[in-house]
């Protein structure tokens, strides 16, 4: 079987011939497109390390068949910075020690970007924690992660206001 799909990955169109329909989006990104920033943790949708945005929404790439995403726009951790300028969420994770070993961090950051875009949590740390519960951190950097999300949300809101003014 040969399936051809076309994706926009980090703004760039990628045409991929799949020789096997079993390929998940996670394996496609890592093994075929060599975008290894997205991590494989549990590979079963439990840890969130593989979180990416598909058409602007955060999902677990390990539980998504690549073949089903023909035509979709995918954003991974490799696509969030502008050159050497970090995305505000990336900068906030550094400023607030939102990680230790760093393995879960790409998933945490993509999840946080998705959370902020969803606009449901507001300034409530409890809502942030609840909305980030699909991302596990075995080092236990949760306190810093929550602070980073709150801070980045303010930065992004201020930037948005600046643009609107």
């Amino acid at each position: 079987m040969n399936l051809s799909i076309s994706l926009t990955v980090n703004g760039e169109r990628r045409d991929v011939a799949l020789d096997d329909p079993r390929v998940t989006l996670l394996d496609l990104l890592r093994e075929r497109l060599h975008l290894t920033g997205t991590k494989k943790g549990c590979d079963r949708g439990q840890c969130g390390a593989c979180t990416v945005l598909v058409d602007g929404r955060r999902i677990n790439s390990c539980l998504t068949l690549a073949a089903s995403l023909d035509g979709a726009a995918v954003l991974t951790i490799e696509g969030v910075a502008h050159g050497d300028t970090l995305h505000p969420v990336q900068a906030a994770f550094i400023a607030h020690d939102g990680f230790q070993c760093g393995f879960c961090t790409p998933g945490q950051i993509m999840s946080a970007i998705g959370l902020i875009a969803e606009g449901q949590a507001g300034d409530d740390p409890e809502r942030i924690r609840e909305a980030m519960s699909g991302n596990l951190c075995r080092c236990g950097a949760y306190a810093g992660i929550t602070e980073a999300v709150l801070d980045a949300q303010h930065t992004l809101a201020a930037a948005e206001k600046g643009r609107a003014a």
């Binding site: 949708g45 929404r57 999902i59 998504t64 999840s111 959370l115 909305a131 519960s133 699909g134």
Partner: peptide
């Protein structure tokens, strides 16, 4: 139910 990522899908 589930997590935000799963609910999105």
């Amino acid at each position: 139910g589930a997590s935000a990522q799963l609910r999105n899908a």
